[in-house]
Nucleic acid binder design. Structure first.
Length: 820
RNA sequence: GCCGAAGUGGCGGAAUGGCAGACGCGGCAGUCUCAAAAACUGUUGGGGGGUAACCUCCGUGUCGGUUCGAGUCCGACCUUCGGCACCA
C-alpha cells in the first residue's frame, strides 16, 4: 500500500532542499540564452493575499517553463517599500514607517517562500533602503542635469482643517476629507516636474515591443495627441500688458462662429480681466471650482455653467467683440487654458449658451440647411457660411485655408497639442526618497553633489496627526549648507512619487550589490531589456508609462542603450471574492496560508490557474478547489500505484494501443506547450487532466507495454512540473528518476505522431447540423459523395427530392449543402 | 462623464467564422460501509415526443445586420468591471 500524498511535508522538504542546493540561483555568465521574466513587485502591505498569489504563481509557472526550455532565467522579487500606508500607520499607531515596512517585508518574505517559486532571494530589492534610494536620488540629479526636471505650480488637495495635503484616495467621493469630513479644496504649490511631454511623440510608438493592443490604445489616448491651430484673439485691456489670448482648436474652420471665450477659472488673467462689478460672482465661482475634482468638472453629465467676467477680446477674423467667461469644464492644464466658444458646432459650447442666451452663429452649413435654428450642435463637415472670404468652401479645405491665412497674418500657428501633462513627482510626505536639492538665498536652486548622496531621511521625524510633511519641521534636516557657496541653505522637503522608485527597480535586479553605481553596466547589458513583464492592467497608464519614459530619458542621457524596458507585456486579471473585489474594509480577503497548509502550495497554484483565463481573473471559490486537490491526489495514485500490462493482449492490439497513446501524448505536449506560451493556463490544465484521465484508462486495461507506460508518466510529470513543482519533484524521486525534475528539458512533440488518423466530418443542410461521419484524414472531396451515400443516411434524407444549389466543403471539418 | 475590457448550463469556464457547453465544481444514481464521510463508477443545458436505441424544437446579455453558416464579424442598446494623473 502506498502512503498518502502529504503536501505539507513535501512543500517543506523540497523548499528546503532547493534552497540548500541553490537550485534556483541565477548566474550572470551562463552560455544558455538569457530570459528576464519580471513580475510587478508587491507593496509590503503586511499580508500576502490570494491576489498576490494570482499575480505571482502563474508568472512562476511560465518562468519555470522557460527554464526547462533551456533558458538562463532571471525571475527576481523585491518590495515597493515607500508609500502612503506606512505613513498612515505612523500617524494612527505611532509606529515608525521604517519599522512598520520592514516588519511587513519580513512577514511577506516568509509567505512568498510558500509559493515555491524560483525567486533568487540573493537579488532582492527593497526601495526604502538607503542603498536603493541613494540611486533614486541620483537618477533625479541626472534628469535634472539633462534639463528634464523643472519647478512649476500645480494644485494639490488641501484640507483646511488638517492643514495638510491629501492624496486623491484620501478625499471621499463627496469631496470631504476622510479624516475630518471637511470640504477639501485645491491649493497651488511650487513642485517638481519631469518633462515627460518631450517624449510624447516617441511614446505613441510601440514598434518592436509586444504589448496588448488595449494597453497601447490606453497609452495613446492618455497622450492624446491632436493636431490643430493656435489662434490669437486680440486683447486690449487697460493696465494689462498681454495683448492677445491664444486658444488651441482642432476646428479653425469654425472660427467665424465664435460668440464667446472661456477661460479656466484658475487662469492667471482672470484676476486682472474681471470687472469690479463681477468680482464677487467670479470669486465665488472660482472657489466652487476649486472644490470639484477633474472628473466632476469634465463630466458631460454635469450641467455646464460659468460666469461672464465683464471683459472682451476681439476675433481678428471678423473684428467682433467676444465676451470672456470662465467655466469649470475648461482646464488650465490642457492646451492654453482657454478655449473659443463655438456653440453651433461644439456640443459642450451648445449646452453652455442655451443656459445663458449667448448667440449661436452657424458657420458650417449642414446639408439642406436653410438658415433655421439648430436643435443641437452640428459637428460634422459641411460648407462654410457667415465666414467672410471663406464662404462656400468645404469645411475640410477651409481648415487648411483659414490656418494658412492666420499664419500669413501672424494671427495663429499650426501646432500639436497633447492631453498628456508633465509628470508631477513632488509629494509633501516623509516616506519617500528625498529630492536632493538645496535652496540657497544667494545661489538659488542647487543640486546636492553626487558625492553627498544619499540625502538620508532623518530617523527621528515626528508624525503628527495634522500638519504638513514631517521633514518640513525637522530643523536638522531642513537647515544645511549650500553646496555651491557654503552659506546657509534649506533642503527641499518634498519627497519623490513612488512611481519614481518603480521606474528603475528592474535595472537594479541585474546587479543588486553594486555600490558605486545604480547597476553594473555589463550585467545590465546582459539581462536587459526585460523579456516578459507581467502584472495588473491597472498600471496601464501610470507605472507602465513612466517606466517607458524613464528608460528613454536614460537612453538620451547615455546611461542605457535600449529604447524600451519591457519587450513583452501581459496583464493578468483580478481575483474577487463573494462577487466583490477583495478588500480589508469589506472583510472578504482570502488569505492563502490556510489553504496552503491544508492542501499544499501546488494545489493553490494550480487552482488559481484553473479557475479562469489568467487575463480575465475570476472569483475565488472554496468548493471548486477540491477538484484540483482530488486531481493531484489521483496523479499521486496513478504514478505510484504500479502498472501491470495485460498479458493476454495480442501484439497488434498492443501496437494499436501504443500508437493511440503516443498520439494523445504528442497532442498533449503540443497543447500544453502552446497554452503556456499564450498564458492559457486554465486550458493547459484541462489538457493535462484529459491526459491523466486517458492514462488512468490505459492503466486499468494494461493495454500498453511497461516501457511505454513509463515514458508517458515521464512526460506527464515534466509537463506538470512548472505547475506543481513539489509534487512532481517527489514523484520524480520516488520513481527512481534523477534529481531534479526542474533541471529536465521540456518535452518536444512530433507533428507526425500527433496527427489524427480519423476525423469527424460534419454534414450540414442549409447550415443545420444533420449528420456526422467518421472519415480518414486523407479523404479528398472526390471521395465524398460515395462516403455520404454509405454513411450519412440521415443527412441524405434531408436532400431527398431537393435541388442542391451549392455545396461548401471545408476539408477536415464539414460539408454544407445549400438546397432549394 | 471620458478611455479600456467583459457578458455562454445551477456555478467556474471551453470553442483558427464551421459539432455550443471541453475540463472542473455542484446535483442525481450507484459501488463500498452497520451507517456516514472519503474515494470510485455512471449520469447531468432546457422544452416536447418515444418501452427503447433515439427523434425533434429552443438555446451564448438585448435588438438589428453581414454570411451557405455567427458565441465568434459589424451597428445600436443594457449590465458589470479596470483606469482617469497624490493608493500602488
Amino acid at each position: 500500500m502506498i502512503d498518502r500524498y502529504n503536501p505539507q511535508e513535501l512543500d517543506r522538504k523540497w523548499q528546503q532542499r532547493w534552497e540548500k542546493d541553490k537550485l534556483y540561483q541565477v548566474s550572470d555568465d551562463d552560455p544558455r540564452p538569457k530570459w528576464y521574466a519580471l513580475t510587478m513587485y508587491p507593496y509590503p502591505s503586511g499580508d500576502l493575499h490570494i491576489g498576490h498569489w494570482y499575480a505571482l504563481a502563474p508568472s512562476d509557472v511560465h518562468a519555470r517553463f522557460k527554464r526547462m526550455q533551456g533558458y538562463n532565467v532571471l525571475h527576481p522579487m523585491g518590495f515597493d517599500a515607500f508609500g502612503l500606508p506606512a505613513e498612515n500607520a505612523a500617524i494612527q499607531r505611532g509606529i515608525h514607517p521604517f519599522t512598520w515596512t520592514m516588519q511587513n517585508i519580513e512577514n511577506m518574505r516568509r509567505q512568498l517562500r510558500n509559493i515555491g517559486a524560483i525567486y533568487d532571494w540573493s537579488r532582492e530589492v527593497v526601495t526604502c533602503l538607503p542603498e536603493y534610494y541613494k540611486w533614486t536620488e541620483w537618477f533625479f540629479l541626472k534628469l535634472y542635469e539633462a534639463g528634464l526636471a523643472y519647478r512649476g505650480k500645480a494644485p494639490v488637495n488641501w484640507c483646511p482643517k488638517c492643514q495638510t495635503v491629501l492624496a486623491n484616495e484620501q478625499v471621499l467621493s463627496s469631496g470631504l476629507c476622510e479624516r475630518c469630513n471637511t470640504t477639501v479644496t485645491r491649493r497651488d504649490l511650487e513642485q517638481w516636474f519631469f518633462r515627460i511631454t518631450k517624449y510624447a511623440d516617441e511614446m505613441m510608438n510601440f514598434d518592436g515591443i509586444d504589448w496588448p493592443e488595449r494597453i497601447q490604445i490606453m497609452q495613446r489616448n492618455w497622450i492624446g495627441r491632436s493636431e490643430g491651430t493656435e489662434i490669437s484673439f486680440a486683447l486690449d485691456h487697460p493696465g494689462v500688458p498681454e495683448k492677445e489670448i491664444r486658444v488651441f482648436t482642432t476646428r479653425p474652420d469654425t472660427t467665424f462662429g465664435v460668440t464667446f471665450m472661456v477661460f479656466a477659472p484658475e487662469h492667471p488673467l482672470v484676476a486682472v480681466l474681471t470687472s469690479p462689478d463681477k468680482k464677487a460672482e467670479v470669486d465665488a465661482y472660482i472657489e466652487r471650482a476649486r472644490r470639484l475634482s477633474e472628473i466632476e468638472r469634465l463630466s458631460t453629465e454635469k450641467e455646464k455653467d460659468g460666469v461672464f467676467i465683464g471683459s472682451y477680446c476681439t476675433n481678428r477674423l471678423n473684428g467682433e467683440k467676444v465676451p470672456i467667461w470662465i467655466a469649470d469644464y475648461v482646464l488650465l492644464s490642457y492646451g492654453t487654458g482657454a478655449v473659443m466658444g463655438v456653440p453651433a458646432h461644439d456640443e459642450r459650447d451648445f449646452l453652455f449658451v442655451k443656459k445663458y442666451g449667448i448667440p449661436i452663429r452657424v458657420v458650417i452649413a449642414p446639408p439642406d440647411w436653410h438658415g433655421e435654428e439648430l436643435e443641437e450642435a452640428y459637428i460634422e463637415e459641411g460648407t462654410l457660411v457667415n465666414s467672410g472670404q471663406f464662404d462656400g468652401l468645404p469645411s475640410k479645405q477651409s481648415i487648411e485655408a483659414i490656418s494658412d491665412f492666420l499664419e500669413e497674418k501672424n494671427w495663429g500657428k499650426r501646432t500639436v497639442s497633447y492631453r498628456l501633462r508633465d509628470w508631477l513627482i513632488s509629494r509633501q510626505r516623509y516616506w519617500g526618497a528625498p529630492i536632493p536639492m538645496v535652496y540657497c538665498d544667494k545661489c538659488g536652486i542647487v543640486p546636492v553633489p553626487e558625492a553627498d548622496l544619499p540625502v538620508l531621511l532623518p530617523e527621528d521625524a515626528e508624525f503628527r496627526p495634522t500638519g504638513e510633511s514631517p521633514l518640513k519641521y525637522h530643523e536638522q534636516f531642513v537647515n544645511t549648507t549650500c553646496p555651491r557657496c557654503g552659506g546657509p541653505g534649506k533642503r527641499e522637503t518634498d519627497t519623490m512619487d513612488t512611481f519614481m522608485c518603480s521606474s528603475w527597480y528592474f535595472l537594479r535586479y541585474t546587479s543588486p550589490d553594486t555600490n558605486d553605481a545604480p547597476f553594473d553596466d555589463d550585467k545590465l547589458k546582459f539581462w536587459m531589456p526585460v523579456d516578459l513583464y507581467t502584472g495588473g492592467a491597472e498600471h496601464a497608464v501610470m507605472h507602465l508609462f513612466y517606466s517607458r519614459f524613464f528608460i528613454k530619458a536614460l537612453r538620451d542621457i547615455g546611461i542605457v542603450d535600449f529604447d524600451e524596458p519591457f519587450i513583452r507585456l501581459f496583464n493578468q486579471g483580478i481575483i474577487i471574492a463573494e462577487k466583490q473585489k477583495m478588500s480589508k474594509s469589506l472583510g472578504n480577503v482570502v488569505t492563502p496560508d490556510e489553504y496552503v497548509t491544508e492542501l499544499g502550495a501546488d494545489t493553490v497554484r494550480a487552482y488559481l490557474m484553473f479557475l479562469a483565463p489568467w487575463e480575465q481573473g475570476g472569483e475565488w471559490n472554496d468548493s471548486s478547489i477540491s477538484g484540483i486537490s482530488r486531481w493531484l491526489n489521483r496523479i499521486w495514485q496513478l504514478v505510484l500505484g504500479g502498472y501491470r500490462p495485460d498479458g493476454k493482449a495480442t501484439p497488434s492490439d498492443t501496437e494499436k494501443a501504443e500508437r493511440e497513446l503516443s498520439r494523445v501524448t504528442h497532442q498533449t505536449i503540443r497543447r500544453v506547450t502552446q497554452d503556456v506560451e499564450k498564458f492559457r493556463f486554465n486550458v493547459m490544465l484541462s489538457a493535462l487532466m484529459e491526459y491523466s484521465n486517458c492514462l488512468a484508462k490505459v492503466k486499468e486495461t494494461g493495454s500498453v507495454s511497461t516501457q511505454t507506460w513509463e515514458g508517458s508518466i515521464d512526460i506527464l510529470l515534466r509537463l506538470l512540473a512548472p505547475t506543481a513543482p513539489h509534487l512532481t519533484e517527489e514523484l520524480w524521486e520516488r520513481t527512481g528518476r534523477r534529481y531534479s525534475i526542474h533541471n529536465q528539458p521540456w518535452p518536444q512533440w512530433d507533428e507526425t505522431l500527433a496527427k489524427d488518423e480519423e476525423i469527424t466530418l460534419v454534414v450540414q443542410v442549409n447550415g443545420k447540423l444533420r449528420d456526422r461521419i467518421t472519415v480518414p484524414v486523407s479523404i479528398t472531396e472526390d471521395e465524398l459523395p460515395q462516403l455520404l451515400q454509405e454513411k450519412a443516411t440521415k443527412a441524405t434524407a434531408y436532400l431527398e427530392g431537393k435541388k442542391i444549389l451549392k455545396q461548401i466543403y471545408v476539408p477536415g471539418r464539414l460539408i454544407n449543402f445549400v438546397v432549394q
